[in-house]
Computed example of a mutant assay.
Amino acid sequence: MMAARTAHSGTTLLAVVGIVAALADGVLAAIGATSWQSYRSGALTVEQTGPFMVMGASAAVGAVLALLAMIALLRGGRGLARATLRLTWLRLGAVFIALVAVTLIAGISAAGVFGVTLAVGDALGGFVVTGVAARRTTVGHQPRRT
């Protein structure tokens, strides 16, 4: 009885971490949207905003993936957890391709270097949440139902 409670509370704690990651991705997506609005109004150049727009789009996808990983943790959905991990790999590849495209087409500024760092760091950080969900929902780590 006590082991089941400990396993369930650990899974719940990991799900809370997933929610926090989704909220952090939401903040980064808002920064990307603000960057887009600044570009549209003429306040910033494409060299300054390009990486932040890529980061914002990636963060929006990351928020959805973090929520899906949280659902997989709470429901014990191994297939969903593995799918979110695969989609996180796809997200990382898309971020690299988009950042290279933005850099080659528009160039990059000093602020853009910071945006590139945030975009890649956020995409890599997505592996923490989805990787844990994939590991915790495997056959050997199924949470017990009481």
Rank of each mutant, 00 (worst) to 15 (best):
H8C: 00
V95F: 14
V64I: 04
A72H: 05
P143G: 01
G112Q: 02
A21R: 01
V64F: 02
G140C: 11
W89D: 13
V61L: 05
H141I: 00
W36M: 13
P51K: 06
I71A: 15
G126W: 02
I31K: 11
L28M: 09
T103G: 04
L44E: 13
T137L: 03
P51L: 06
T45Y: 12
T12M: 00
H141C: 00
I108Y: 00
S35T: 07
L73V: 05
A110W: 11
P143A: 15
A83Y: 08
A59H: 04
D122Y: 02
R136E: 04
A4N: 03
D25A: 13
L44G: 09
A119R: 02
A57N: 05
V64E: 07
L68A: 15
T103S: 10
Q37R: 07
V132M: 09
V46K: 04
V139F: 12
R86V: 04
L67S: 07
G79K: 07
V120H: 13
G131Y: 15
G112C: 08
R5P: 03
G107T: 00
S9R: 11
V46N: 07
W89N: 12
A106Y: 15
A66E: 15
A21K: 00
L92N: 09
G115M: 10
Q142A: 08
V46F: 11
L124R: 09
L90M: 08
A133N: 06
L85I: 12
S109M: 14
L92P: 05
Q48W: 08
M53Q: 04
Y39F: 08
W89Q: 11
A22R: 06
V100Q: 06
A21H: 02
F96E: 15
G18L: 02
R145D: 00
I108S: 00
T130H: 02
V54Q: 09
S38A: 11
V61R: 06
L99C: 03
A94C: 10
A63M: 11
G50W: 03
W89G: 05
A111G: 12
F96P: 01
V102R: 04
L44R: 14
V17Q: 12
L104E: 14
A60C: 11
G77A: 12
T103A: 10
T45V: 11
S35N: 02
A111F: 13
S35R: 10
T34G: 15
G126V: 09
T117L: 14
I108L: 08
V17W: 01
G121V: 05
A60R: 01
G18T: 02
R40H: 03
T6L: 10
T130G: 08
T34Y: 04
A24L: 14
L90N: 04
Q142V: 12
I97P: 01
S109C: 14
R144K: 08
V54D: 11
G18Q: 03
M70H: 08
G18W: 00
G107Y: 03
Y39Q: 13
A63D: 08
A60N: 12
T34E: 15
M2T: 02
S35L: 01
V132A: 15
A15H: 01
R78G: 10
L14C: 13
I97W: 06
R78L: 06
S9G: 02
A24C: 12
Q48I: 06
I97T: 09
G140A: 12
G121N: 15
I97V: 13
